[in-house]
Simulated assay, not measured.
Amino acid sequence: MATTPRTAVPTLIGSVQRALRLLEAVGSHTDGAPAKQLAREAGLPLPTAYHLLRTLTHEGYLRRERGVFVIGPAAERLAGGGAVQNRRATLVDSLTHWRDALGVPVYFAVYRQGEIELVAVSDTPAAPAVEEWADFRETGHAHALGQCLLSQLDAASREDHLDRYPVRPLTRHSVRDRGILLRRLAAAERMQPIVEQQEYALGTVCAAIPITAGSSAAAMAISGPSSEEERLRSAVETLRSEVGALLGSLAFSISI
């Protein structure tokens, strides 16, 4: 059986390092640069630079335009992934701040492409998040986050969601049918908290506030034991009063 030469791995690592140096060199020029300049800046022999530039262009990491090389779509996607991670970190930092300030679990969710999506949760062992014992996406009618998101939709989108995910009681406190839920959602006041008491999980109360960013629907929520309902209502009012300061860090998080 043939074996891989011992020099293969170091050679491969060296090729990757040289390719990265070329990418860095291209990235330092807004309008691109020719191969000879890039080879010089990356400290590479011109034939090596040509070979790597052709490979990077073929793979989409670079583009050649009017004799110069510029960053390609594959490299832009990599940079975009880093931006998403930065946005998520900013979001988590915001949730953590309010978790510590209020002493309760904090949630952030969006309504995207017809689905309820729980984007991030921040909790502690002393104040744990509600256990997702029934799929949050399918039970939006029964928890404050879902009700808050559904209240922000237009009538047609709301009806479409409930056609796909029919109202069904999860506990003895849950909303019983679609008509009751629709009347409740229609009565929800703009920017006012929505509170559900043991509708999703017995012994738990949850309160959510809408986060408005253009045409997108998003919501923040907190939860706690049902015995601490008054404290939770006070906490969500504090959160609502400060939501303006949060919009900068949360609005762009809708695109995560």
Rank of each mutant, 00 (worst) to 15 (best):
M1D: 08
M1G: 14
A2V: 11
T3Q: 07
T11M: 05
G14R: 12
A25W: 02
G32D: 04
A42C: 08
R54E: 09
L56Q: 06
T57A: 07
V68T: 15
A75T: 10
L78W: 06
L78Y: 03
N86G: 09
A89M: 08
T96D: 13
H97I: 12
Y111F: 15
Q113L: 02
Q113S: 15
G114M: 03
E117P: 02
V119C: 05
S122N: 03
A127D: 14
A129V: 03
E132H: 07
F136S: 10
A144T: 01
G146P: 03
G146I: 06
Q147L: 05
L150F: 06
S151M: 02
A155N: 09
A155L: 12
A156N: 07
E159V: 08
E159D: 15
V167E: 05
V167C: 07
L170T: 09
S174E: 04
I180T: 15
I180R: 15
Q192G: 00
I194L: 15
E199D: 04
T204E: 06
C206S: 14
I209K: 00
G214M: 03
A219F: 04
M220E: 03
E242P: 04
G244L: 08
A245R: 11
G248Q: 10
S249N: 10
L250H: 01
A251I: 03
F252R: 12
